[in-house]
């Protein structure tokens, strides 16, 4: 999985992701899960890594898991006072949860590719240079900004800042404004330094990629699986 050409991997796994979101029938859920498990096993990632990544986005799904069986459908299975668990809602909830786990698993496999390599692959696939440049700048300076924020917050707390009141809003506004000013000032310095190094003048390379027959075969397999999944969801 990790030796797969980045461009082909991006296209193949994205097609699988879209196809998985087309699944609306519970009968296709095992197929979808099997495809996701296949991708995960091929990536040889530890299960603990997957579980740790699933935990946080799982909270977003909690509302759907609780509300959909109560709000969707007409066939009441169990009644608790004025609340009724409905069969159609329960089936829909199971489809959503399976879809969520499958899509997230494939996304996590896709996300293990080095970020810069993914951006180069997107550039090679035709993403405008303005966007790839912005992504790379963003990626490069995000940790700097995070460190800057932590330092500024520590400085505020050391000066006795109380963060638990609404009256602290002006201090938060000043913190936000100062951080934006610092990022603005840094961007000016970065731009001037890059201009001196010839930014914007040299012809662009589209990254060095070389696809083999195995890469093409893997892409074809991924596309066939995706097309099959979409066709089956329309058929059922």
């Amino acid at each position: 999985m990790h030796r797969w050409d980045a461009r082909y991997k991006l296209v193949g796994l994205s097609a699988l992701l879209l196809a998985m979101s087309a699944v609306n029938d519970l009968r296709l859920a095992p197929v979808m899960l099997a495809l996701a498990a296949g991708c995960f096993l091929l990536s040889r990632l530890p299960l603990s890594f997957l579980l740790s990544r699933l935990r946080y986005p799982g909270f977003f799904l909690l509302a759907v898991v609780v509300l959909v069986p109560l709000m969707s459908g007409e066939t009441v299975l169990v009644q608790f006072g004025w609340l009724g668990v409905r069969q159609e809602g329960l089936v829909l909830m199971l489809v959503i949860v399976t879809r969520f786990v499958s899509i997230l698993t494939v996304s996590i496999v896709l996300g293990t590719q080095p970020f810069v390599k993914s951006v180069q692959a997107m550039g090679a696939l035709g993403l405008p240079p303005l966007l790839t440049d912005m992504i790379l700048f963003f990626y490069r300076y995000l940790s700097d900004m995070a460190a800057m924020l932590m330092q500024m917050q520590q400085a505020m707390w050391l000066r006795g800042f109380q963060a638990n009141r609404l009256s602290s809003l002006p201090a938060y506004a000043a913190l936000m404004g100062s951080l934006l000013l610092r990022s603005y000032a840094q961007s000016e310095r970065v731009y001037l330094a890059m201009r001196l190094r010839g930014y914007g003048a040299a012809p662009r390379s589209r990254g060095q990629f070389g696809a083999t027959g195995y890469d093409r075969a893997a892409l074809a397999l991924a596309l066939v699986c995706a097309a099959g999944l979409v066709a089956a969801s329309w058929w059922l």
């Binding site: 700097d144 900004m145 951080l179 990022s183 731009y191």
Partner: peptide, 13 residues
């Protein structure tokens, strides 16, 4: 581009 990207990183943080 650098200004927008760095300010975007600032907003993100």
């Amino acid at each position: 581009v650098p200004r927008a990207a760095l300010l975007a990183a600032g907003f993100f943080v």
